Computed example of a mutant assay.
Amino acid sequence: MFKFVAILLGMGVVANSAIAMSEETAQIDANGDGVMTIDEVQAVFPDVTAEAFAEADADDDGALTDEEMVSGQEQGLIPASTGG
């Protein structure tokens, strides 16, 4: 029973993080295409360098998905929040 409750709580945390990230993505993703370019990221986080962005861009496609953004934030490459 304890494992079941722990799993449910964990799923709730993940769901809340996904909702928060989607809201943040909407703030950063200026053209609404579902990914964030370096220009869009730097418009919100001016201190993010091209090198940090490239390191966060795991698939080297020139844009960050939600997953890449979260990973970049966890690695300290990108600030954790837009603050708003």
Rank of each mutant, 00 (worst) to 15 (best):
E55Q: 14
V41T: 03
L9Y: 01
Q75N: 14
I19D: 11
E51D: 15
E51T: 15
L64V: 03
N31P: 02
V70D: 10
M1F: 00
D33R: 03
A50G: 09
N31A: 11
L77A: 09
I28C: 00
L77R: 11
E23K: 15
N16A: 15
V41C: 03
M69K: 05
T49V: 01
F2Q: 13
D47N: 13
I38C: 02
D61K: 08
I78R: 07
G83M: 08
Q42N: 12
V44A: 14
I28F: 02
V41N: 00
T65M: 05
A18Y: 13
E23Q: 15
D29F: 04
G84A: 07
S71Q: 09
D47P: 01
A58F: 08
D61W: 07
S22F: 03
A54G: 07
S17G: 13
G12N: 07
M36R: 05
N31G: 07
T37M: 01
E24C: 11
I28R: 10
A56R: 05
E40P: 04
V5D: 06
E68S: 05
D57E: 06
D60Q: 13
Q42G: 11
A58C: 09
E51W: 08
V44G: 07
D39W: 01
E74L: 15
T65D: 09
G76T: 10
A54E: 14
E67F: 14
E55M: 12
V35N: 06
P79G: 06
M21V: 11
V13T: 13
D57V: 00
A58S: 14
A54W: 03
E40M: 08
Q42P: 11
F53Y: 11
T49I: 03
P79I: 01
D66L: 10
A80H: 09
P46M: 12
D29R: 04
A20I: 08
N31R: 10
S81Q: 05
E23L: 13
Q42E: 11
V41F: 01
L77Q: 10
F4S: 08
E55W: 11
E68D: 11
L9V: 08
T65W: 08
T82Y: 00
V44Y: 05
T25E: 02
A63P: 08
D29C: 02
A6S: 04
G83K: 10
M11H: 04
A56I: 07
Q75T: 10
T65Q: 06
E74M: 15
D59A: 01
G10L: 02
D47M: 14
A15D: 04
G34H: 07
V35F: 05
S71I: 08
V70R: 14
D29S: 04
E68G: 06
E74D: 13
T82S: 00
E74N: 12
N16C: 10
A63S: 11
D29I: 00
G10S: 00
T49M: 03
D60L: 04
I38T: 03
K3M: 02
D57C: 04
A26H: 11
S22P: 00
S71L: 13
G83Q: 08
A50W: 00
V44K: 13
S17T: 13
V5I: 15
K3F: 01
E51F: 08
V14I: 14
K3I: 01
D66I: 07
I7D: 05
G72F: 05
T37C: 04
